[in-house]
Amino acid sequence: MAKILIVEDDRHINELIRRNLRLAGHECVCCFDGKQAQEMAAGKQYDLILLDVMLSGMSGFELISEIQDTPVIFVTAKGELKDKLLGLSLGAEDYIVKPFEMLELLARVNVILRRSQKEEKLCLGSVQVNLNKRTVEMEGREVALTPQEFNLLEVLIRNKNIALSREKLLELAWGYDYEGETKTVDVHIQKLRKKLRLEHEIKTVTKLGYRLEM
């Protein structure tokens, strides 16, 4: 969906971020060096830049002032408050401290991307979902979903290709203060599968939870 530049000098972490973002359908370009990143960012062809701070050639804090018009998220081991404040004051949209969780990274990336995108429409087999209008159509006809069902569908779409535990789904779709049972999740998943005929797309992952595959 979006084109993202990953600037991270640790090759394994760079690879990790790339693979995670690819799950969410983003196209990634990897860069391992500050100087090179500066040249690549100058083309302004990216929707988002993930930037490490401790880089060879040029530090992320130096680099960000060279980047214009492209949102930047810092991904760094520097977790102290003063570093966070410095990073954000330099114009970063967000600041992620290593080690991070995959879902956190994706959620933060999505927030930034959503800001710049006007309408979010996507296809799930024969189902068309409009995330802005909160409508779902199947073969041209609108399907009525309860708000909670839509919430759940949205969470699954935003974290597609990632297995989400029942607890995580409760937290993301129902909210932190919801004190329901994980059974509720199963019931809603069954309804979604039935209404939208997504039996194949919404997979049950043993001992873990559910995953929307697309």
């Binding site: 995670n20 290593k98 080690p99």
Partner: peptide, 19 residues
């Protein structure tokens, strides 16, 4: 210290959660 931990945790999580 955090770089290897990030990689280890991240790839393990990736294997666990992604197809």
């Amino acid at each position: 210290l955090k770089s290897p931990v990030t990689s280890i945790y991240g790839f393990a999580e990736y294997i666990q959660k992604a197809r």
